[in-house]
Design a protein around this nucleic acid. Structure first.
Lengths: 182, 182
DNA sequence: GGGTGCCGTCTATTATCCTAAACACACGAC
DNA sequence: GTCGTGTGTTTAGGATAATAGACGGCACCC
């Protein structure tokens, strides 16, 4: 067994401020079980691990998705955002260097007439955002629409999509997508 | 055990076009084990389930995260956003009615002195955002910091966190979180 | 009809996990 | 001091999972 289930569980438990006995009681197992698991002296069955996590509560998916190793960066000043745009479109990415993050969050700035080109598509995931300034024509699947400040969008990336700044001023958007593409 | 590990495994295995014996051989377990797991006659230990998934290969996190999705509305005008705030904090949610979406994207507006209260925590997921206007004190785990326009944050929700508008003007944020809490 | 090969299932045995209860240590109250 | 209550750890034994190998089914070929 390569993955450290025990350490993982201990981290989760202590993060919630629970003792082994408290967690055991909530989960309907014995404190000894928790102890043995945390020491990696046993590899719990999925059913018992689920019982334990139900006591937190936390899903199995989240449990195994947890990063754990260190405490990652939380705060990013505006000049710490990773910029990845070209001249037409500027993208400032939050938490770019964070491994295995679940989302990309970006501050996007489109010059007048900027255009992502016809019908981008990714295999998977979802994307959404809110327009802050300017006017953006968004085409998703068959549908097309011009969005202004305060308007928003949300779509599955498997559908072809295109962004085009149809205004005379720059268009600014905050967007999020999952899973992160960049 | 509420979750259907067996059916799940069978779906993964057949998706990869493997027989029980093939998968067993790759994984270093016996075909009987696969059979018993798929029938939910046993709840595999994490270690053996991991061995089995290594034969695919697939991570435990992905295994437990498997799901499906889809839905229609793409564009949301500003007054179509679902508002869910109280007097102190206004939250405008994109695609609120969309079932099984992967993220929540929100336009958040905090009145001066607005405070989410001490140490909220959700059991799961990640959250991030970008400050548009005003100044927000964000506390995550031990660390605390005041963020201004253009600054950003990103953290795992399992860590206790708190937002507090420390400025005299309203603070506006666009945030995203996954999985959606609301 | 008899082989051959691959499929998933089942059984008897062995290996591992889970429980209940004891154990050891630390800290505060009195 | 010695209770009382909190913590995590250990142990014996019963419960559960994993193994090796047998079993029956189905398709294909001779």
């Amino acid at each position: 067994m390569s993955i450290d289930v025990g350490g993982h569980l201990k981290a989760v438990r202590t993060m919630y401020g629970l003792s082994q006995r408290e967690l055991a009681k909530r989960a309907g197992v014995t404190n000894g079980t928790i102890s043995l698991i945390e020491q990696n002296r046993v590899s719990p069955s999925v059913s018992s691990l689920k019982k334990v996590l139900d006591g937190v509560p936390m899903s199995l998916a989240d449990f195994f998705a947890l990063d754990l190793q260190e405490s990652p960066q939380v705060f990013y000043s505006r000049d710490q955002l990773t910029e990845i745009g070209d001249r037409e479109v500027s993208l400032k990415l939050v938490a770019a260097q964070r491994p295995n993050r679940a989302m990309s969050i970006m501050y996007e700035r489109y010059r007048p007439k900027a255009d992502t080109g016809s019908d981008m598509l990714s295999q998977q995931g979802e994307e959404g955002g809110i327009i802050l300034k300017g006017h953006m024509e968004l085409t998703v699947g068959g549908q097309s629409r011009v969005l202004g400040p305060g308007d928003a969008y949300y779509f599955a990336r498997a559908v072809p999509h295109r962004f085009r700044n149809v205004g005379d001023e720059p268009c600014e958007i905050v967007s999020a997508s999952t899973p992160p593409t960049v």
